[in-house]
Amino acid sequence: MSTLEIRDLKVAVEDKEILRGVNLTVKSGQTHAIMGPNGSGKSTLAYAIAGHPKYTITGGEVLLDGVDLLELSVDERARAGLFLAMQYPVEVPGVSVSNFLRSAVTAIQGEAPKLRQFAKDLKSGMDSLAIDAAFAQRNLNEGFSGGEKKRHEILQLELLKPKIAVLDETDSGLDVDALRVVSEGINRFRATGETGVLLITHYTRILRYVKPDFVHVFAGGRIVEEGGAELADKLESEGYEQYTKASA
């Protein structure tokens, strides 16, 4: 049983205040969707929680099972059980997918996985996400299509088994087939009931595959409305306009 608590989080980028007091609690077994227009600060929230150096915390707290994440380095946060699927995964030349994944699994588990077990997990993970086996030998994200990058993020999610996963627009840029594959991956990850998901999205489409327990509307750097899955339907029909006007 894990809990991610975000309390009155304020974040600035290059002296510009972006997040203006975010409050949100995600527990294992729950899926929270954060929905909001472009530029409302959704990625800022994700990066700030993960510890990206460009984002300055100007106030508030982020606790994972009582541990202050903001005091930890990026890698310590990941080892504490936090995972961020990036909206735009970067290409890292010369670092192979298999080397990267093995290094990550070793770091998270605290010891090198048994080679045979790792190979097996990797293969079944890649199979279920319809990732060609040849990707293991390719350089990390290099020359991957948008959809391949996203599937690869979910592969990492399944291999690293975090306590809390923040998924930043994992659905954007995916065609329907890829969206289904990626959603199935997220649902496998949720199935244990021991993990929490913070699903950031611009569109309601993915919520038909990954049912949220809570929906939060994000605008102008804060949560402006909260509800259950039905709130997504309202957004689907009415759009974000009423919120962007209100927050401006």
């Binding site: 993960a50 510890g51 995964p89 890292v92 670092v95 990267f100 290094s103 770091a107 998270i108």
Partner: peptide, 18 residues
């Protein structure tokens, strides 16, 4: 470096890998 660290890989090791 951020991407590798976000997967739990410590800074020094991430730097060496890159």
């Amino acid at each position: 470096i951020f991407y590798l660290q976000a997967r739990g890989i410590p800074y020094d090791q991430a730097r060496r890998l890159v």
